[in-house]
Design a protein around this nucleic acid. Structure first.
Lengths: 236, 236
DNA sequence: ATGCATGGTGTACGGCGTACACCTGCGGCC
DNA sequence: GGCCGCAGGTGTACGCCGTACACCATGCAT
């Protein structure tokens, strides 16, 4: 009986189960509160048990990233490179945004896991088959940076805060010190009346910058850009 | 005597001294190894003494960012907005690159400090006086994101590692699995023979993407872009 | 029956951030 | 001169963290 209860409570535990539980727990309590101890507790197990399935916390985080990257849709067959890349990146964005901690964790990883590498490989492939040279593809990938996975780390966190007071970037008293920031913030706040909810429309900002880059890429591709002809110069 | 030695060892300690010591220590031992305890030790003081000068570790990190941002050159008077912005951002890059931990810490801050805000204000001002509408400036700032402070978080850390083996993104055995990554990596490795040192030329990549964006901004400005006319459409 | 591998357990260590009570020395005041 | 207040350095302690290491339970191959 007690045996049975135990058996029920304890599905056998595996790397996969550990990772999925970690993702769920981080979703719930936030990444900074996620600890090996709490994760173990959640799984009804002693902390050290986890170490039979992941080498250490770093590897746990790597695995969590893999889970999220695994949620990205496979590439849809598209005619032109631009819509293929665009669609894939926006899918990545959807996956990443589903886990508020994901962007931060991705950035903290020292090296890409095979899963991330596979994703990158497929994106590189889209450019190559789209007519980009190896050289241009290389620089284009760097220019994308984290945007390739659907996020840009903003300089400050615009995520909604429970306290609307704390949301204000600049308090009224400082308005005079930062005239341009204030002007901009007020203009944005005004627009909000139509958009509902405070802050900017992150999705719009993301697509704005993404399209700006993709358009730039296309322009360079068409003019046969190479490292030897910096973007400022005109090719003959 | 012993008194004197103590007096010498102990300059009076202040918020500023604490922050500068923290920056120096982080430069030396890395940000992840920086702790309140080690910082106190470095200053010849007991850990809790620091709390008379900074509220907590988060505020210490905020202060460290301020020190780095304070190293950015003031804006030089320039004729056109593009070279003004470009020059300022590249100066920010110089400052940030001087402290290997800086980019990571900047990204981890929840809200901008007044010092960071002042920097942003001056960048916004360059766009506004350069003929950008409030609307376009807003989106342009988002598009810049962390690049405004001179760095882009790459998806994986390309910083030099002591072990050249560990440097390889993809080990030979996996070459078949990631054909495009491999193709690209090999092409880059080839170029390296001329550039000396492994990895890509980060400065080139940064300027490549920066110029791509700035050129895109200029194009939008010239055509009188507004939120109502997405980048894909042609304005009349 | 036996031995071995797999995986969960218990204990323990060293490090962290920091709350809180305390002490000490100095400047201003009567 | 005697006193007080207060800024700033101290000591102790708590609760959390990641994880090393020795142990033990189980089930399977022999």
């Amino acid at each position: 009986m007690a045996q049975q209860t135990e058996a029920v409570r304890r599905a056998p535990l595996s790397r996969d189960r550990v990772l999925r539980a970690a993702v769920a727990l981080a979703d719930e309590i936030g990444i900074e509160a996620l600890s090996m101890r709490k994760l173990a507790q959640q799984l009804g197990v002693v902390p050290m048990a986890l170490y039979k399935h992941v080498a250490n916390k770093d590897q746990l985080l790597d695995g969590m990233v893999d889970v999220v990257v695994g949620e990205i849709d496979p590439p849809a067959p598209e005619s032109d490179w631009k819509s293929a890349v665009r669609q894939r990146i926006l899918s990545a964005r959807r996956a990443l945004l589903g886990h508020s901690w994901a962007a931060q964790v991705v950035q903290s990883r020292a090296r890409p896991t095979p899963v991330v590498l596979a994703y990158m490989d497929s994106v590189i492939g889209m450019f190559r088959t789209g007519g980009f040279s190896v050289d241009l593809t290389h620089h284009v990938m760097h220019a994308l940076g984290s945007r390739m996975l659907g996020f840009t780390q903003e300089l400050f966190d615009a995520s909604p805060s429970p306290d609307p007071e704390a949301q204000a970037v600049v308090v009224p008293a400082d308005a005079g010190k930062f005239p341009y920031v204030t002007e901009l913030a007020m203009a944005v706040a005004h627009d909000e009346e139509s958009v509902v909810g405070q802050g900017c429309d992150d999705q719009f900002e993301f697509e704005f910058a993404l399209d700006l880059l993709l358009d730039g890429f296309e322009r360079l591709r068409q003019q046969g850009w190479t490292s030897a002809t910096p973007s400022g110069e005109k090719t003959a």
